[in-house]
Computed example of a mutant assay.
Amino acid sequence: MKTKKLLALLLAGAMSASLLAGCGSDSSADTTSGDDAANPSDTAAADSDLAQIEDAGKLKIGYTVYEPMNYTDEQTGEFTGFDTEFAQAVCEKLGVEPEFIEIVWDTKQVSLESGEVDCLWNGMTITEDLKQNISVSDPYVQNTQVVVTKTENKDTYADYANLVGKTVAVEAGSAAQSVAEEDENLSQSNLVTVSKQTDALLEVKSGTADAAIFDQTMAENMIGEGTDFADLTICGVFHEEQYGIGFRKGSDLCDKVNEIMATLNEDGTLQSLAEKYGLSLAE
Rank of each mutant, 00 (worst) to 15 (best):
L163Y: 08
I245K: 04
G57V: 12
K93P: 00
L10H: 02
S33T: 11
I234L: 14
D47I: 09
L50H: 09
I134N: 03
A282H: 03
Y160K: 07
L281M: 08
G77D: 10
L279V: 06
D83Y: 02
D42T: 12
P40G: 07
V90N: 03
G123V: 03
A8V: 08
L20G: 06
N221V: 12
Y63A: 04
T193P: 02
D255L: 01
Q145M: 14
E92A: 07
W105R: 01
A172S: 13
L59K: 00
L19D: 10
V90M: 07
P139I: 07
L163C: 05
S48Y: 08
E241L: 04
Q75F: 12
D228I: 11
E283S: 10
K5T: 06
C23N: 13
A161N: 08
D231F: 05
T125Y: 14
L186F: 00
L6I: 15
K60H: 13
V65Q: 10
D35E: 14
V146P: 02
Y243L: 07
E259L: 01
E128D: 15
N221F: 12
L191Q: 13
T43R: 13
N70G: 06
D42N: 08
V136F: 06
M222I: 15
D199M: 07
D47R: 11
K5H: 10
A209M: 08
E220F: 05
S187C: 11
G62D: 11
E241H: 02
E92D: 12
E283G: 09
N190I: 13
G250H: 07
I103Q: 07
L281R: 06
K166R: 15
V141A: 00
I126S: 07
E275G: 02
T72W: 11
N190R: 14
C119R: 03
V204N: 05
S114V: 01
T156G: 01
Y63V: 13
E184W: 12
S27N: 08
K60A: 13
N39S: 13
T127A: 10
Q188Y: 05
Q216C: 14
A219Y: 08
A169F: 04
F214N: 10
D210P: 03
Q109I: 12
D129Y: 02
N221E: 15
Q132N: 15
D49V: 03
N122D: 10
K58V: 15
F82K: 03
L201K: 05
A46Q: 13
S272L: 01
S272W: 05
N265P: 00
L186A: 03
A200I: 12
G236H: 09
Q145G: 05
Q109D: 08
G207T: 14
L281G: 01
V90S: 05
T156K: 15
A274L: 01
A175F: 11
